[in-house]
Design a protein around this nucleic acid. Structure first.
Length: 956
RNA sequence: GCCGGAGUGGCGGAAUUGGCAGACGCGGUGGAUUCAAAAUCCACUUGGGUAAAACCAGUGCGGGUUCGAGUCCCGCCUCCGGCACCA
């Protein structure tokens, strides 16, 4: 019986917009779009006149790492947003480049391989298949003909090629750009450039080379080893024995940026400091340009701030403090410090060096102070992990026994070592000015060191606190009375005149650790000869592909080994085979066994999309200069990439720009971060979290009482990240099966502003489903499938339609999809009401326009209506239709309702001509019955009338 | 601690430039339809107040500027994100 009546109902409305019908429409059109290549975009024909090229819009999503778990609901949020904009821009006549691909090298596939022995390529390609299937099911308008993955040899061939470009480049600080290394050698040979180690080379920091450099002598007189060392010190990619962040659990070293609170960013595993021979990128050479470039791009302010703080430029001075011997005489040696407050040097009552500072070792060997205590302290500091350092900021330290000479007070001051001074920043040594620095204050108090105030404190300043603010210099000799800024200038001039120091700019940014000890990454295009010298492989041998491995288990060792070291056949080759020109062909060479980090592939994928099939170049000049003009026009992705990916990609791009391979200095013109899609979970009184399936609501929806089933304790509902453990993960496939892709897209866009993080509420999806049902029902007879066309346009609907077209367009431009959808809902609701009354609400022309403005949001519904209107047959896909025209006259009303306030509160409403001026509005308002009765007997003090807005009468 | 961002009905949110607070959706209540239910459609839905209105209060809290403040200014509170011994 029940089954029978169900069939009856279905048969009465066979064309009802159900999930089944939606699924049918959607998959049908997806196949058709694929077949016709509707979203494929071709590069413009080369032309001399660039202004005649069609306007372009390059819209890029941060490509996903294809995990085995498939898409989660966070992925489609940004992808739907860009899809809407791309579809809109196409309708507005833009040539739209909207590509998709895969960031497919990385740890999860390799860790899976360690456990199962399945090759990462197998796992990854399966995951890519699944991701592609899922993305296609959303109807995104990607140009799939441009798809690639970072693991494709055709792609990583060029990743390796770019590495070689960087390796073969140096940074010319005079021209402020990178240049080929050959030009440096040439300049040395021709004696056009002083032959020195690169004074900015971080790997030689502390070597004591002065800016300007120590002259090594004429190039011709130098031996091969020295020449090599000098050239290498300039390369933008170099090898350095570095204390790195070694993560045993991941079996690899990590970049500073990948370590958070002493744990790995990925996985949260402990990280230890360990010296390793590593490839580094001299990103610090670009510190200033990376900073300046931020001012030229349209990026979220918070991201620009994060990057600029990461780069951390600070201006100050380097000062040399002469060291004293036991008798108080100058030894001739100096201790160099960096300070941002040279004005406070009169208050420098002691100095501190990092425990790793060479002076400490010297003090130990010279037995100047308490050697045992020093040794112990240095050992303890070395073992003290970053986590422990975070935990306690209690000041510890030991006197080194070394005394220095304050060059302005001419007083002897002690040199201490303490771990609150970091070896990696500045010179690893400071002049301590306790009165003007809180850390120095704490240290001075802990060890009873003298404190001299050199900046006048405000009258109410406590006695027991450092003062870091603005004030006049005191106890400071020749700079007394000057403000901080003037005092700094004056002091730097003095130091320069007396050769005690010079102006200096320091950055927090460190060179970028670029090698990893894993398998599943790009191999370096580098081999080592028998002397251990590195050589670039010949370009013609690229790509250097990964060898097959018997197993992926990391080599367990205290001395960490890269995994590829196990692939001995691959590892050992000859110079001839590797294409190394400057060695005899039969010379034995060993391949670099480290691999590149996951960031490598994502540093330049935005370029490859412009010309993904090019076998001759990483990107052709024509496509690159067309699509990349002004940078990517819109780049959308998560804010978690604010420093890592976005900084690295900018660095690569700038190097490529300097070397003439790309035409723009900045890769991403406009950047936008979508918010996170969150979910719900519950929290106990002790703030621990409870999975959603372990809680019941014993109250009502309005007055919920959430009770943990197991304990009967009351818990509070909170917004939390989706996670397996909280059982609150939503699977997009399920949602599409239940409602269709169009509903899913609308729901995610309707949740709220794109940039905001917002909780997923499965219940709310219903609203968008109903909306699409109403659209369908307004246009299509559910019983017959015929269009419900109205003969004569309703004037009100026509006016609303124009306004909606206008609002949706401007809302899309400002990425406010939620309000655009709200406007369409209002239009459709009005149409539905009219249809209830008259049998049909829209004319064919109105339906057509509704379909077109809806199409960017719900492309399948749009295309289906478009097709039913006969337009697909004659004109092709709605994707290539024009955005509807707006008649400006339709946006204006003759009469408008104007609220009338009395003393700021709305008391009445009057109808007034839309163009009524202030005077006319005032007259009309004062004529109004309600207004007159309310102000009766009162004096009108003032009337403010804003044409088209409101009238405010101040009376009393 | 420092630097960002945000706090609006039961919930997600709207108010784009200082000008009608709460658009639109969810949920809820009532109704239509149905033997019934689901689905759908219609009406109402910030709180207090009232038979209904009037009226009063109201955008985290306390002040201020203004004819008028969610929006601007000052001082707090809370939450989220980032940085954190960087001299």
């Amino acid at each position: 019986m029940a089954l029978h009546s169900l069939h009856m109902a279905e048969n009465q409305t066979p064309y009802r917009y159900t999930a089944a019908l939606a699924g049918d429409i959607e998959t049908r059109w997806q196949a058709e779009w694929d077949r016709l290549g509707v979203y494929e975009v071709s590069d413009p024909e080369p032309t001399a006149d660039r202004s005649s090229l069609p306007p372009k819009f390059y819209c890029l999503d941060m490509f996903p790492y294809p995990s085995g778990a498939g898409l989660h609901v966070g992925h489609p949020e940004g992808y739907t947003a860009t899809d809407i904009i791309c579809r809109f821009k196409r309708m507005k006549g833009f040539n739209v480049l909207h590509p998709m691909g895969w960031d497919a090298f990385g740890l999860p596939a390799e860790q899976y391989a360690i456990q199962t022995g399945v090759h990462p390529a197998v796992t990854t390609s399966k995951a890519i298949e699944n991701f592609r299937r899922q993305l296609k099911r959303f109807g995104f308008s990607y140009d799939w003909s441009r798809e690639f993955g970072t693991i494709d040899p055709d792609y990583y061939k060029w990743t390796q090629w770019i590495f070689l470009q960087i390796y073969d480049a140096w940074y010319d600080t005079e021209q402020n750009r990178a240049r080929p290394i050959a030009e440096l050698v040439e300049a040395f040979e021709n004696d056009e450039r002083r032959v020195t180690l690169n004074p900015f080379a971080a790997e030689y920091a502390g070597a004591g080379d002065l800016p300007g450099g120590t002259h090594a002598g004429p190039w011709a007189t130098l031996d091969e080893e020295t020449r090599r060392a000098i050239v290498d010190s300039y390369r933008l990619a170099y090898i350095s024995l570095q204390t790195v962040n070694w993560c045993p659990k991941l079996g690899t070293a990590l970049a500073n940026e990948e370590v958070i609170d002493g744990k790995s960013e990925r996985g949260g595993y402990p990280v230890f400091r360990k010296p390793l021979r590593q490839w580094m990128f001299r990103i610090t050479a670009y510190a200033d340009r990376l900073l300046e470039g931020l001012e030229t791009v349209d990026w979220p302010q918070s991201t620009k701030t994060q990057q600029s703080e990461w780069i951390g430029r600070s201006e100050g001075a380097e000062i040399d403090f002469p060291l004293l011997d036991a008798t108080g005489h100058k030894t001739g040696e100096t201790l160099r410090v960096f300070t941002t407050r040279p004005d406070t040097i009169f208050g420098a009552t002691y100095m501190v060096v990092a425990p790793e500072h060479p002076l400490v070792d010297e003090a130990i060997s010279a037995e100047a102070g308490d050697t045992a205590a020093l040794r112990e302290y240095v050992a303890a500091a070395r073992n003290r992990s970053d986590v422990e350092r975070q935990e306690s900021k209690e000041k510890t330290g030991v006197f080194t026994g070394v005394m220095a000479h304050n060059p302005v007070t001419n007083e002897p001051i002690p040199v201490w070592t303490a771990d609150y001074v970091l070896m990696g920043y500045g010179t690893g040594a400071i002049m301590a000015v306790p009165a003007q620095d809180e850390r120095d204050w704490d240290f001075a108090k802990a060890f009873d060191l003298p404190i001299v105030r050199t900046v006048q404190t405000p009258t109410d300043w406590p006695e027991d606190k450092a003062f870091t603010g603005e004030g006049s210099a005191i106890n400071s000799g020749f700079i007394d009375g000057l403000g901080v800024a003037d005092a700094k200038q004056r002091m730097i001039e003095y130091l320069e005149d007396t050769h005690h120091g010079q102006r200096k700019i320091n950055f927090k940014l460190r060179d970028w650790l670029f090698s990893r000890q894993r398998y599943w990454g790009e191999p370096f295009p580098i081999v080592f000869d028998e002397k251990g010298h590195h050589h670039a492989v010949g370009e013609q041998t690229l790509p250097i592909t990964l060898p097959e491995m018997a197993d992926y288990q990391p080599i367990e060792s205290d001395d960490p080994q890269p995994l590829l070291a196990k692939a001995t056949d691959w590892l050992h080759t000859t110079a001839g085979e590797a294409g190394v020109a400057d060695l005899p062909p039969d010379a034995k060479v060993t391949r670099e066994a480290n691999t590149m980090p996951g960031w490598a592939g994502s540093c330049w994928y935005h370029l490859r999309y412009c010309d993904p099939k090019n076998g001759e170049r990483m990107v052709g000049e024509g496509p690159e200069s067309y699509w990349m003009r002004g940078g990517v026009d819109l780049y959308v992705g998560g804010a978690e990439h604010a420093v890592l990916h976005l900084l690295y990609a900018r660095f690569w791009h700038k190097v490529l720009f300097d070397l003439g391979h790309v035409s723009t200095d900045e890769p991403f013109g406009k950047l936008f971060h979508q918010g996170l899609i969150l979910s719900h979970a519950y929290q106990r009184a002790d703030r621990s979290l409870v999975p959603v399936d372990e809680v019941e609501n014993k109250g009502t929806d309005e007055n919920p009482e959430h009770i943990e089933t197991a304990t009967g304790e009351s818990v509070t509902q909170i917004v939390a990240k989706m996670s397996k453990s909280l059982k609150n993960v939503v699977n997009p496939d399920d949602v599409i099966a239940e409602f269709g892709a169009d509903t899913f897209r609308l729901y995610e866009m309707y949740m709220g502003p794109l940039e905001q993080s917002k909780p997923w509420n499965t219940r709310d999806i219903q609203g968008m489903y109903r909306f699409l049902q109403r659209v369908w029902c307004l246009c299509v007879d559910e019983a017959t499938g015929e269009l419900r066309v109205r003969a004569e346009a309703d004037a009100d609907i026509e006016k609303r339609l124009h306004r909606t077209v206008d609002k949706v367009a401007s809302d899309i431009e400002r990425l406010a999809f939620n309000t655009a959808i709200a406007a369409m809902i209002e239009l459709v609701n009005a149409g539905t009401k009219l249809a209830e009354k008259d049998g049909a609400g829209l004319t064919a022309s109105q339906m057509d326009r509704l379909a077109r403005i809806l199409a960017p949001f719900a492309p399948h519904m749009g295309e289906e209506l478009w097709s039913r209107l006969g337009r697909f047959e004659s004109e092709g896909s709605i994707a290539r239709a024009e955005w509807p025209e707006v008649d400006p006259a339709m946006l204006k009303d003759d009469q408008v309702e104007i609220p009338v306030q009395i003393k700021g509160k709305v008391k009445a409403r009057i109808m007034a001509p839309a163009d009524a001026d202030a005077k006319a509005l005032e007259v009309l308002a004062l004529q109004d019955e309600t207004v007159r009765s309310l102000i009766e007997g009162q004096t009108i003090r003032k009337v403010i009338a804003v044409p088209g807005r409101m009238v405010n009468i101040v009376a009393g």
